[in-house]
Design a protein around this nucleic acid. Structure first.
Lengths: 157, 157
DNA sequence: GGTGAAAATAGTCCCAC
DNA sequence: GTGGGACTATTTTCACC
């Protein structure tokens, strides 16, 4: 994982459709070299895939919310059960299994507030395994398009 | 926004590096047609970009957390100020400005729990504009790689 | 809007270093 | 692990439908 690999990750995070030729040019290596680097990074699971970023509005998901869910009995079976359930709902964008005040944070994207309401009362409230949930409607989201690699270092000392 | 556009969004969400030729083949249209469709979708802001999905572990971010932040005075200036601040921190993956019990939900990714601790006490606790925060450490994340377009419909009635 | 063919450009493999 | 070169494939434009 040297400087070239880091730069490949940076460049492909910014524009996954860069041609291999252009990638090689920016790296200062031959195209065959960058191609081989990409292959290795992919095989090692460093590059997990390439995805188009589609406007949520175009997907009829102009309204987003983060729903913190607490289960009645947060044991393995209940957690796995809810996780599977939530992941399959079309409104759900991502599901975080967490430690803290809650057991899950569910990121949902829906058409409007009526659909958010419907999601909460029809899909969540009816589940017996949920002790309760708190909903945070999203006003604005800032997502980093390019994530840098953090220094591998000890803290403080 | 017809069936072909929808399928383009699906296919490019799944694999942004699909060649235009292969895309056209799967759509059942000529390559020049799919190329033009992509151009229009991009110009209209439906396709926002193409990004490689890089393993968080490879980026030294094996530990993730969601931090719910409450400001002392959630007025415009304070909100914008904290949003700018949080977005610039290298540990931060995304920032949600929300309504509800909190003012922000900050998604962070760091090397380990020591670095999470350092992030919280060094970067957040020192800020005078923060009334408090709650941290949820992430055990597991399930993110949808392909987001479908939701039906455009009224709820209930 | 969509198509097909031609010209320009890029991807990929092999082999020598 | 890297780079050059040859071969193949893809992208892109454009006149036409």
């Amino acid at each position: 994982m040297d400087e070239i690999d880091t730069k490949i990750m940076d460049l492909l995070q910014t524009d996954a459709r860069l041609s291999n030729r252009e990638l090689a040019r920016r790296l200062g290596v031959a195209p065959s070299t960058s191609l081989e680097r990409i292959r290795v990074l992919t095989r090692r699971g460093v590059i997990r895939g390439y995805h188009a970023d589609i406007s949520l509005t175009a997907l009829n998901r102009g309204v987003q919310a983060l729903v913190a869910v607490k289960l009645r009995t947060p044991a393995r079976a209940a957690i796995d059960g809810f996780k599977e359930f939530a992941s399959r709902l079309p409104e759900v964008i991502s599901v975080f299994v967490v430690a803290g005040d809650d057991d899950f944070l569910v990121h949902v994207g829906v058409q409007d507030l009526d659909h958010l309401h419907a999601f909460l009362v029809d899909r969540l409230s009816s589940r017996r395994d949920i002790a309760g949930f708190r909903t945070s409607v999203v006003f604005e989201e800032t997502r980093k398009t390019k994530l840098g690699r953090l220094e591998s270092s000890a803290v403080g000392a």
